[in-house]
């Protein structure tokens, strides 16, 4: 996690530095300064979250001497291997976008379909514990 924090902190600092430099060089051109500043802010947000998350984190992958035996728990974990909802969510997204342009009915169907898919996906996730 420390690498994660450092990585994003350096990236955020770079984002702000290049935004300030760009503003000095071309302050009459606002779009570029805005894009770079937003980039720096987004990276700073990720860094702030990482700092908070890092305080309580213990990741086996961060310890160079951790063994598989030390990392193993009683339950190895439960993982999903199939779900019908992703493909349906993608289809509904396409229906929503095309419907917004040409057919409000199709758009509404896409939106309702997406909501239903997310609802069922949540239920599936709760049922399988994944």
């Amino acid at each position: 996690m420390k690498t994660f924090v450092g990585l994003f902190a350096i990236d955020a600092a770079f984002g702000f530095a290049i935004a300030v430099t760009y503003w000095f060089v071309a302050h009459e051109e606002a779009a570029g300064t805005a894009l770079l500043a937003i980039m720096g802010a987004a990276l700073a947000l990720a860094t702030a979250y990482a700092v908070l998350a890092e305080r309580d984190a213990h990741l086996e992958g961060d310890d160079p001497n951790e063994t598989n035996e030390q990392a193993a728990g009683e339950v190895l974990g439960v993982f999903t291997s199939a779900s019908p909802w992703p493909i349906l969510i993608a289809l509904c997204t396409l229906a929503l976008l095309t419907g917004m342009l040409w057919s409000p009915l199709l758009g509404a169907a896409g939106l309702i379909g997406m909501i239903l898919c997310f609802w069922r996906l949540g239920a599936e996730s709760a049922r399988t514990g994944t």
Binding site: F4, E60, D63, Q70, A71
Partner: peptide
């Protein structure tokens, strides 16, 4: 990559 590395698989490995 940040959270699912195996034991001993540090970022610098």
């Amino acid at each position: 990559v940040f959270l699912f590395r195996a034991p001993g698989m540090t970022m610098w490995r």
